[in-house]
């Protein structure tokens, strides 16, 4: 196994970023579970697993804090 490089200057920043990405995935899972339950309650088809805009919003937020003006946070066009 090779050691992952560190890119961010602050102590633990790279590990914290990894955790943030994992946390975002789990938020997406929870949102998906809620959407499935709502669909079942309403008699609709379950939602697609790819119906999420969380990562683009996270990236915009992170780069926004560095002073850039990123693009839209709209849903990805597959």
């Amino acid at each position: 196994m090779t050691t992952a490089p560190r890119y961010l200057g602050e102590p633990h920043a790279d590990a914290l970023l990894s955790g943030l990405l994992l946390l975002t995935q789990e938020v997406a899972v929870l949102r998906h579970r809620c959407a499935v339950l709502e669909a079942e309650r309403d008699g609709r088809q379950p939602p697609s697993p790819d119906d999420s805009d969380l990562m683009p919003r996270l990236v915009d937020e992170l780069f926004g804090r560095l002073g850039t003006t990123q693009g839209t946070t709209g849903k990805e066009d597959r």
């Binding site: 975002t24 995935q25 997406a28 899972v29 379950p46 697993p49 999420s52 693009g71």
Partner: peptide
């Protein structure tokens, strides 16, 4: 379905980085 949700988050992140 839940594995696909997680994988999709990474897919979406990669696209965001490449395209924007």
């Amino acid at each position: 379905a839940e594995e696909a949700v997680r994988q999709n988050e990474i897919w979406t992140l990669k696209r965001k980085l490449a395209e924007e």
